[in-house]
Amino acid sequence: MENFWKSTKCRVILCILALLTGVMIYALSTGGYTISTVGLFKTIAAPFQYASNAISERVEYTLRLYRNAEIHYEQNKALREEIAELNRELADYEQTKEELEKLRGFVGIKEEHEDFTLSAPCDVVGYITNDPFHAFMINGGTRDGIDLYDPVVTDQGLVGVITEVGTDTATVTTLLSPDISVAAYCATTTDRGVVSGTVALSMDGLTRMQYLDQNTALRENKVILTTGENGMFPRGYVIGYVRSIENDDSGMTAYAVLTPAADLTNLDKVVVVTDFDGKAIKNDALTRKEAADAQ
């Protein structure tokens, strides 16, 4: 064992460690922009991830079917074959219809918000492993005009922001994360606050709107929208619906527990708003990137 510490092997391993530390520091200095080699790897790996995701979804689907079949087996025995036959016939039709509905929804965003410049619909390549806030990777990047801190939406509502971007892939941090703050208001009661996630609420796929007055007029099912004040998110986009009103630990303010309008735990397609009226942060991000490049 003593020989190991004096050997060339030990020096080589120390060199590898130094190199990895260098890579880590370099990755940190890029400020959210994916290192090109990693970006290339992610691009190459994406089709395999699709395949493994498809298998995983299939397994989950089969397991779910099995559980339900066990519960209703006796009742459904006679009908199952007929349903299966009809399902097979309907499968193609449903799949096509679903795809069409999603795309129609995305077109609807553009119709409702004419100032938006939208990316092409992006597929969710996969959720980040064991992330409590359900961050995920999409198959769009700087090549598609997507940049850091661009808002990500579905036709149902706001999803989150781009927090890491490469040439062909990007990572989206969702509204469930405490790292994101969205200025928000209620159109009917004019209550204003900041939407930001918590660890506890993220477990149930919920988020919260904090800094509300204790006598807030907000009630269940009220719609919460973005104010667009800081230029990071467009104005008037749906964030979610009020589920309940709670008092803050300090007792000074109240907060509303929100159900996000989009199901953040089970997404398969999203679009990125690459530009909109009042967008300010993009210029700041670009300035930072240019400054980093210049260094």
Binding site: I13, I16, L20, T21
Partner: peptide
């Protein structure tokens, strides 16, 4: 051996960083 295991650790560690969305090299 030690060198091969360092190489395996490097590859698996970097893949783990990508899968878990962590800082590359962490």
């Amino acid at each position: 051996g030690e060198i091969q295991s360092a190489a395996v650790g490097t590859v698996c560690g970097l893949l783990l960083d990508i899968a878990c969305g962590k800082l590359l090299g962490y």
